[in-house]
């Protein structure tokens, strides 16, 4: 068995999600190859070659793969996939965009967001916003899978010395083009990789009040997230949303501030090691999953917390 892991990369570096995906591949067992597709990604390929447990890095460096447009990258993966037993990608927006396209072209089902590997063909994945866990078995010749990164501890980014091999194939479907990006800039840790996450909900009242959370987060070295209610209300941008359809996080400590705890939000954070809830409504469902609950006005509790930590 040989497994192809589609690397996630940004700004010329391997994204942490790739390391969790390689960890899932290692659980499947067999040789692990990593595909780096993009433009000017030689440096990414060099880094990917150092990932622990990787046997080979395939690098497809071509203008057609810039911005990883699925119309162009999917045919590349399909062409390569024939030699592999599994194709894995992290369940990031990028992985979710490309991999189903690959699966359909290979005429196989895709298995989405696995959280455990039971065997080389059997996996567990959450359904119904994590209210049920399905065990699924695949009979596909090539198993096409996205990996929920919080389910697998990252492998070491250093220590390997894989061979790097160029892939000549250039696929340019010519039906889509990248226009532009508005990326959030933040000095705080990335939400899905942070050890501590402080999240705010509708109870924050407005976007300006999130400054209380930013101050607390900076003192803790934490990332800042939000519930869907806070994003829908326009308090903060979409990239901060934690939940069933936003980002899935599982930090050491999750501090939910002014968040009631809809099941769609719990789906995105209930695997956190320690959950703290601060809410003035003592009946809020968030308290049913919180290790430590504090019934209090957040505008008093958060500044006090910031002073004491």
């Amino acid at each position: 068995m040989t497994i192809l892991v589609v690397a996630e990369h940004e700004n010329g570096a391997v994204a942490p999600a790739t390391l969790n995906t390689v960890a899932a591949a290692a659980k499947v067992g067999g040789d692990i190859h990593v595909l780096v597709a993009g433009q000017n990604v030689g440096g990414v390929a060099e880094s990917a070659a150092k990932i622990a447990g990787v046997a080979k890095v395939l690098v497809a460096d071509n203008a057609a793969y810039a911005n990883t447009l699925p119309e162009n990258v999917a045919p590349l993966i399909v062409e390569l996939a024939k030699g592999y037993s599994h194709v894995l990608a992290p369940a990031t927006t990028n992985g979710k965009n490309i991999l189903p396209r690959v699966a359909a072209l290979l005429d196989v089902d895709q298995i989405s967001e696995i959280i455990t590997v039971e065997s080389a063909d059997t996996f567990k994945r959450p359904i119904y916003a994590g209210n049920a866990i399905a065990t699924v078995q695949s009979s596909a010749a090539v198993k096409v899978i996205t990996v929920r990164t919080t389910g697998f501890d990252a492998v070491a980014a250093e220590g390997g010395s894989a061979a790097v091999e160029a892939v000549a194939a250039a696929h340019d479907a010519g039906i889509s083009a990248f226009v532009g990006e508005e990326l959030a800039k933040s000095d705080r840790p990335e939400l899905t990789a942070a050890k501590i996450v402080v999240s705010g909900g509708r109870g924050m009242g407005n976007g300006d009040n999130f400054k209380h959370l930013y101050t607390l987060a900076d003192k803790l070295g934490a990332a800042v997230g939000a519930s869907r209610a806070a994003v829908d209300a326009g308090f903060v941008p979409n990239d901060m949303q934690v939940g069933q359809t936003g980002k899935i996080v599982a930090p050491q400590l999750y501090i939910a501030v002014g968040i009631s705890g809809a099941i769609q939000h719990l789906a995105g954070m209930k695997d956190s090691r320690v959950i703290v809830a601060i809410n003035k409504d003592e009946e809020a469902p968030i308290f049913q999953v919180a290790d430590y609950g504090l019934v209090a006005d957040l505008f008093e509790a958060v500044p006090e917390l910031e002073k004491l930590v």
Partner: peptide, 10 residues
């Protein structure tokens, strides 16, 4: 809506 923010494609 992508992980890092927003992306526009034609």
């Amino acid at each position: 809506e992508i992980d890092g923010g927003l992306q526009t494609v034609a």
